[in-house]
Nucleic acid binder design. Structure first.
Length: 788
DNA sequence: GCATGAAAAATACCC
DNA sequence: ACGGGTATTTTTCATGCG
């Protein structure tokens, strides 16, 4: 029978030395299905030296049958490697586990130049070769096979054909379950070897809200009830916030300690950590929403409550917030415990709300790059695009390069103009549309079109980057050109479709997510090319794109000046001009003629303020909003007193244009700060640890704070943000640091915040008007009048 | 020993 | 674990002074 299904997850098993690909999905009737495919075999390639006789080599390999009993087939194939035609042998094996071993031995044969694709994992091989994508519909020939395996699905099938993609936008109705833990510890961070899980809050998209609560600090029943609930609800997707790193490992350990099996899977297994550090729950997609918060750079401190607030899921003002350090005191106090329960319940609710906002994007990204839904979030950007490239490369016969070590050699990037400080009226930003992707398309810049200095020009001719002199063959169209063209085309099509749809419709949401995913991948191609960790790392590709970018923007500036436009600033792919619409149109036309690139007004500022510094400015938009770029307001590593006061000063200066009022405002703010009127929270400075504590060469404040946390039982790892305050005292700053939860308002050195946070931030702005720092401190009189 | 200033380390931003 | 360009703060280190 033919079955149409939407692919949720894949995993791979070996049964009787036969690899099996398990596809978990949902059919058109809403049945949960498991399809097992036993017909697919893995393989790798042996790329041959030139002038090698393939038949002879095939015979040799066949002759060594004893050595390689699991080789099923060895055949000659024509492939490409970085665009060059090569002869290769495709070696198909019975069991993927022997691939690397066989490849290693065979790779050493004299006539074999290199061995490729033995490092492609079985399940990914399956997705690539059959053009199967997670979160997409497929059709497949199957037969029922209920007895094969016990799974929490409606049906189990054996595949009788390979799946074929079916174009369909609609996503089936999925069952989603969100959960959040509260763990109890008397002191410091909870440790799974001793501290119990006291609350598990669960919410589902069917409207269930459940809480499993410990009695007498015993969590065996809590976990058992949770597992039962999961099995009974049988979700397709399990979501949480920070679950890959915290909740799952904790639950796994607690279950182990209680002798419980954490049977939340669709087969009799348990969650386990897998590729890219994600926790895999077989048969379901386990998603950690935290992994998608990179897409929200506006949220500086990525806590559940901040993300929920930003996405309008639950506003901070309406939330119950309890710091983790306080959990125990809330739990122990009969009167306060309900608030802890409420907090936990809200956590689960926020998780569901965030899922609503991010899941479409996650699914579109998964579908686009072909990484399973539960992997795609944990995979770094470089790996996401690499999977996309891998799939496309396979289609055009390009072999997938090995990941090899490359030395890091930096190259020149974009141009940044130095702004003249001051306030400007009516400034437009002219942006190149997708500059790097467009340049790569126009000049056919690609790993497979690059010509090394040794190679001579091909008959079709070459494109050459102006300064670096890197050459790229004009024909045939490179791998990147094809991919980028189709991505850009797809995005344009999707955006056109969006305009016809009701913004609230389901289809609109899906397509909008698609459009975003496509954009992310398009823009990542340039960076990927210059990443030394990339399989297709070809530095000249990135270098040439940057070179042409510089050339293009420089020419643009020249032409703009010829036309009579005043250029006040520019960064990489944009120029800021005193806006004259007619001239801007003329410029766009010339750019189109000369480079075949599109430049158009993006933002138009009523007024814009430049400091002397590059990459830091603030513009007033026609709708009255401030567009603040690079300044302390949008930096997460400044105390809120600095950020808030700077923002207000900018607002006064740009909207009301009153220097005097701005200075008065600063005076008042400082007076209030000295009177301890600022919330304690506004004094916390957050900084990320970018490496393990012991690797730091200097005694930095946030590292010292992290050490204190560690000493008190907190687990601190790379990437964590440390929140600290500066306390009174003398000597080096790092000696006066305390984690914010270990200090109180009385400990804080307010003068530090005045002179090292607030004043520098506002002075940076008022400096533009030649206001001196001394003028920013409240006069004695102001202080006196305040004190009296 | 200490003030001073330049260099290095560190972070987070822009595009 | 996608690129380079940039501003900024704090620590560290070299240097000159006395």
């Amino acid at each position: 029978m033919k079955l149409r299904f939407w692919l949720l997850d894949v995993n791979y098993e070996t049964k009787d030395a036969t690899p099996e690909l398990w596809m978990w999905g949902i059919d058109t009737k809403g049945n949960r299905v498991l399809i097992i495919d036993r017909n697919f075999k893995s393989y790798f390639y042996l790329v041959l030296e030139e002038n090698t006789n393939p038949e002879k080599l095939i015979k040799e390999i066949q002759g060594r049958k004893n050595e390689f009993p699991l080789i099923l087939k060895t055949e000659q194939v024509k492939k490409k490697y970085f665009g060059k035609p090569v002869n290769a042998l495709k070696v198909t094996v019975q069991n993927p586990e022997v691939m690397s071993k066989y490849a290693n031995i065979l790779g050493k044969i004299e006539d074999v130049e290199r061995c490729l694709e033995d490092d492609v994992r079985f399940s990914m091989r399956y997705l690539i070769d059959n053009d199967v994508s997670p979160c997409e519909w497929h059709e497949i020939e199957v037969e029922q096979a209920e007895d094969v395996v016990e799974a929490l699905t409606d049906k189990v099938y054996l595949a009788k054909s390979f799946p074929e993609r079916v174009e369909e936008v609609e996503v089936p109705k999925l069952r989603v379950l969100g959960f959040s833990l509260i763990c109890y510890s008397e002191r410091g961070m909870p440790k799974p070897d001793k501290d119990p899980v006291v609350i598990i809050s669960v919410a589902t998209n069917a409207g269930d809200e459940k809480q499993f609560v410990a009695e007498n600090l015993k969590d065996k029943a809590v976990i058992a009830d949770f597992v039962n609930f999961v099995r009974q609800f049988n979700p397709d997707i399990i979501v949480g916030f920070g679950t890959n790193r915290q909740d799952w490992p904790y639950l796994i350990q607690r279950a182990q300690k209680s002798g419980l099996k954490l049977h939340v899977d669709r087969v009799e297994t348990e969650p386990h950590t897998s590729v890219y550090g994600h926790v895999s729950v077989t048969g379901r997609a386990n998603i950690d929403l935290f992994d998608f918060t990179d897409e929200l750079p506006e949220v500086k401190l990525k806590t559940l409550e901040n993300v929920a607030d930003y996405l309008d899921v639950m506003k901070l003002e309406k939330r119950t917030i309890i710091e983790d350090i306080e959990y125990a005191s809330y739990w122990d106090d009969e009167e306060k415990r309900p608030r802890l329960l409420k907090y936990s319940k809200e956590n689960a609710q926020c998780i569901m709300g965030i899922t609503d906002a991010l899941l479409d994007f996650a699914m579109q990204l998964s579908s686009l790059v072909s990484l399973p839904l539960d992997h795609v979030g944990t995979a770094a950007v470089g790996f996401r695009i690499e999977w996309y490239l891998t799939k496309k490369a396979h289609r055009i016969g390009e072999l997938i390069p090995k990941r090899t070590q490359h030395p890091y050699i930096p190259y020149k990037g974009g141009i940044v103009l130095k702004p003249k400080k001051g306030l400007y009226e009516n400034v437009a930003v002219l942006d190149f549309k997708a500059m790097y992707p467009s340049l790569m398309i126009t000049y056919n810049i690609s790993p497979d079109t690059y010509l090394s200095p040794k190679e001579s020009d091909p008959p079709s001719g070459v494109n050459m980057a102006p300064k670096t002199k890197h050459r790229f063959s004009k024909e045939p169209a490179g791998f990147y050109k094809e991919i980028l063209l189709s991505l850009i085309e797809e995005r344009n099509k999707t955006k056109a479709q969006l305009e016809k749809l009701d913004p609230k419709s389901l289809e609109h949401r899906v397509l909008d997510a698609r459009q975003k995913a496509v954009k992310v991948i398009t823009n990542a191609a340039y960076g990927y090319a210059g990443w030394i960790g990339a399989r297709w790392y070809v530095k000249p590709v990135a270098e040439a794109a940057a070179d042409l970018g510089r050339h293009t923007i420089q020419e643009t500036i020249e032409i703009a000046k010829e036309i009579g436009l005043e250029v006040v600033y520019g960064d990489t792919d944009s120029i800021f001009i005193k806006y004259e619409p007619d001239k801007a149109v003329k410029l766009a036309q010339k750019i189109d003629e000369k480079f075949g690139l599109e430049i158009k007004p993006d933002k138009i500022y009523v007024r814009i303020l430049f400091t002397e510094a590059k990459k830091r400015y603030c513009g007033l938009l026609p709708n009255g909003e401030l567009d603040i770029v690079g300044l302390e307001v949008i930096r997460g590593d400044w105390a809120d007193v600095a950020r808030k006061s700077q923002e207000k000063v900018l607002e006064i200066l740009l909207k009301e244009r009153s220097q005097k009022k701005a200075i008065q405002y600063v005076h008042q703010y400082i007076a209030d700060l000295r009177a301890k009127k600022a919330p304690y929270k506004d004094l916390i400075i957050w900084k990320a640890l970018t490496k393990p504590i012991e690797k730091y060469a200097v005694k930095a404040p946030h590292v010292e704070a992290a050490k204190m946390l560690k000493k008190e039982g907190w687990e601190i790892s790379t990437g964590d943000k440390v929140g600290y305050v500066i306390t009174s005292g003398t000597g080096r700053l790092y000696t006066r640091v305390k984690p914010f939860m270990f200090a109180s308002y009385e400990d804080v050195d307010i003068e530090y915040y005045v002179t090292h946070q607030l004043v520098p931030a506002v002075a940076r702005i008022l400096n533009v008007f030649d206001v001196k720092e001394e003028e920013l401190f409240p006069s004695k009189r102001t202080l006196d009048s305040f004190l009296s």
